[in-house]
Amino acid sequence: MTAGLLVFHSAVPNAAGRPGSALETFLPWLGLAVPVLVVAALVRRSVTALVAVLLPAVAWAGLFGGLLLPADGGPHDLMALQHNVSDENPDPTGTARALAGAGPDLIALEELTPSALPAYEAALAPAYPYHAVEGTVGLWSKHPFTDVRRVDIKPRSIGEGWNRGLRCGVRTPRGEIAVYVAHLPSVRMRANGFGSGPRDESARLLGAAVAAEEVDRVILLGDLNGTVDDRGLAPLASRLSAPRRGLALSWPAAVPVARIDQVLTRSATAAEVWTLPATGSDHLPVAARIRLDAS
Rank of each mutant, 00 (worst) to 15 (best):
G4T: 14
L5C: 00
A11G: 07
V12G: 06
P28T: 07
W29A: 14
A33Y: 08
P56W: 04
W60L: 09
A61N: 06
A61D: 09
P75F: 05
L78Q: 04
L81C: 03
Q82K: 07
N89V: 09
P92L: 05
T95R: 03
G101R: 06
A102L: 02
P104W: 09
E110K: 10
L112D: 08
P114E: 13
L117Y: 03
P118K: 13
A122M: 03
A122L: 10
A122K: 13
A123H: 00
A125L: 13
A125W: 08
Y128V: 11
P129N: 10
Y130F: 14
V133H: 11
T136L: 08
S141V: 02
F145L: 09
T146L: 05
D147M: 13
V148Y: 01
R149I: 10
N163Q: 15
C168S: 10
G169N: 02
G169Q: 04
V170M: 00
P173F: 09
G175L: 02
I177V: 15
A178G: 10
L184Q: 01
S186W: 12
M189R: 10
N192R: 15
R199S: 03
E201Y: 07
A203Y: 02
V215I: 14
V215H: 03
D216W: 13
R217G: 00
L220I: 10
T227R: 01
D229N: 14
D229R: 14
G232C: 04
P235V: 12
A237R: 03
S238G: 11
R239V: 00
L240C: 05
S241H: 13
S241T: 08
R244F: 03
R245G: 00
G246L: 04
A253I: 13
V263T: 13
L264R: 00
L264C: 07
A268N: 06
A270V: 10
A271N: 08
V273P: 05
W274I: 04
T279R: 06
G280D: 06
L284K: 06
V286D: 05
I290N: 00
L292A: 11
D293R: 10
D293N: 13
A294P: 11
S295Q: 15
